[in-house]
Write a protein that binds this DNA or RNA. Sequence first.
RNA 1: CGGGGCGUAGCGUAGCCCGGCUAGCGCGCUUGCUUGGGGUGCAAGAGGUCGCGAGUUCAAAUCUCGCCGCCCCGACCA
Length: 598
Amino acid sequence: MDATRPPNCVPNKIGNRRPARQNARFRMKWTQTLIPTLREAPSDAEIVSHKLLLRAGLIRKLAGGVYTFLPLGLRSLRKVEQIVREEMDRAGANEVLMPALQPPEIWEMSGRAETASNVLFKVKDSAGRQWFLSPTAEEVITTVAANEINSYRQLPKNFYQISLKFRDEIRPRFGLMRAKEFIMKDAYSFDATDEGAMASYKKMYDAYTRIFARCGLKAFPVEADTGVIGGNYSHEFMVPAETGENEVAFCEACGYAANIEKATSGVPKTAAREIGAAAEKFATPGVVTIEALSKEPYKVPANRQIKTLVYIADSQPIIILIRGDDQLNETKLMAKTGAVAVRPATVDEIVPLLGAKPGSLGAVVNVPASVKVYADERLQDANDMTTGANEDGFHFKNVSMERDIKVSAWFDLRTVTAGEPCAKCGKPLKIRRAIEVGHVFKLGTKYSEKLNATFLDVDGSRKPSVMGCYGIGVTRTLQAIIEQGNDKDGVIWPLSVAPYQVCITPLAVAPESEPMKLAEKLYAELTAKGVEVILDDRDERPGVKFKDADLVGFPIRIAIGEKALAKGEVEIKPRTAPVQFVKIDGAVEAVLALAKTI
RNA sequence: CGGGGCGUAGCGUAGCCCGGCUAGCGCGCUUGCUUGGGGUGCAAGAGGUCGCGAGUUCAAAUCUCGCCGCCCCGACCA
């Protein structure tokens, strides 16, 4: 399940990349740039990666959910972008750049002006014209395809961009994790056939696996809900982290993994029993919870109760029935019913509808014909159940789903819980939190139909392109790398995305001092080999420089002090391994060799 | 948007309940000396509209009201 490094890709390559000469990209002196490290984290940072982004001088906050990338942060960001770019190119995608400023008309056409309204950043120009700041670009790229792709001969095509995206987050959180603006890579594939679209999807899926591996991330794909973006097949790439905002159910035995919003399990249906001839009403004064009904004197186990929920789905009230010991999964509810917006009904909406308050609700009697009843599949064939009587203070027992309740449709609506048997292999499922760093969707023809992205097929018929879309949260990925790679001293960068690969730390910085002279020499030699080096030329005490180097997290540090120098040695210290002393003449080679093992 | 919390120097904070301030401390910053292999030591400094605005009062960082910003939980989330 862990994404491992693909065999034929060579990440973390160091040295001999190209003749660097004096290329500024490869070298920097600490005093030339700005690395404002902080001994203490600002109090508004909560999670470790956010604190370290600030403490290591990588970013600064301008406003809630809006950040400046400082020089070091930008270097790492660019490296992530470059990895994404290389792998997208390798997978045959074409880089484009689309406008951030988008006219509402195309969003009206796709229907997302309404369905995505709550996250759309809306701005007006001085003429009063409305614009949307792009959260993603399905509408734009599909418009391009509509205008420029006319023949099956031009397909398949895949376009991507890496650009600033905007989202009107109601609550920005955790630094770059959930920001109002962020860098995203979005790609869009167009195919003539469904099989072609699947192949395009697979290419992106594989590219994502490579990308995250090259970023040093343990990311793994999980089955995912498609949300308002639409489509019918989707995977998210998840980085395990306790601070993640997603929950993932997975099976270590067979590899099944799915977002909790989507996950299913092999839990048994509710066993049928011998029951009486009819449902029977009984008094339950003051009992308004599953919990209370399961205790004395009623003693109805939660798994023999039917939980009745009233929701408003796209302005229409609906009833949802799930087992007393289960939790409704709202994402599944939306996915299965096709509703765009759902919310629990309020007490004021429920009472006129069913005649009772929450806690005494049921679907046996007094359900208006216009109200659809959706029941969780786990209740199919269930009987000997207890449920509310739609009369405050009363419940029914001896309830049979089949006999006593008119169900409009059966769906899988429950949320899986840890320990349930895997639907595929029966072994217990586990659940853990994770950060979503990428998402691939098979879109189908939803956008191509609405925006007229059609082409002439071999047989002369006009067909909509079959689309896919593929996102990577680049800035979020950067933070996920830090969330996954850190210790008490600071960031632990993978070599591939570290702002600089090597930090040279001379313990004396006077230009004619022996340590500084050697530092300059190694700096020049390593740079010439294509190694990215920062030279800490600050006139600071050793402790300060070591602490800062650890905090920023350079993968390799070379310390040059009088003591080792007297023995003709320098000190090479990998960020996460013990120090080694090497002869001065072999220092460059030693660094190059070491880099191959990181 | 609902609930909770917080805004005092670049960062972290004390003071606020119980009004009396010339607003204290640590880190950072400047200067000098010192030290020189894991955030040296000493000394002298600079730096504050106490988030903003009104009000109460002889007197407001402190009490009241309004606003703004930030953080957390929830809702929401391509």
